[in-house]
Amino acid sequence: MFRDAWLIAGKDLRIEMRSRVGLNQIVPFAVTVLVLFAFALDTDQEALRTYAPGLFWVTVLLAALLAIGRSFAVDLADGAADRLLLSGIDPIAVFGGKAAAIAVQLVVLEVLLGAGVLLLFDVTVHRYGLLVCAGLAAAAGVATAGTLYGALVAGLGVRETLLPVLLLPVVAPVLIGATRAFQDAFGVAGAEGWAWLGLLAGFAAIYGVFGALSYGALLEEA
């Protein structure tokens, strides 16, 4: 099963590297959102620093919607989704592989946007360990929930508009937890960062298990 999950993840990542959609479209979109936030608040540097964690994670979630939609679009484009069903690969491996590929893309996006936040919002990092762990756990949570809901809407003609409506409320706990953890890591609020990290890890674990168990049924309906 791990071999198949690795196969799926490798395929998805290779397609993304080859197509450069992430680099040429998703990253510029995310940077633009971040810059717009900076323009909107730049008269108040203190507000920028205070709200930097929340603005960062809202931007990551918006960009994640594009990455998740793209992950399923490449399978649907010329019938590869049917081939995946016919391949006999365990749906759990398909889920794991797709979620892993999305998570890797989100981590790369977080690193690039994190540099942007440090540059534009004038924040400093006080707890690097918490920052890295929260970033990884949030990426895992968004990727697992996103893969699940991406499959849910994959077969629908309105998937591009339906995915945000369904997914954003579900990942609200990630937004809250990751924002609180980053506030602690940036030293802009007295949040219990490590406790919020627990919430992020729990969210990722729940959606990881739930997604793995239900993915086969979702693929059948897609």
Partner: peptide, 11 residues
């Protein structure tokens, strides 16, 4: 073998 190829354009 259906009407669509089942291939990935970028590979």
């Amino acid at each position: 073998l259906g009407h669509r190829t089942g291939l990935y354009d970028d590979l």
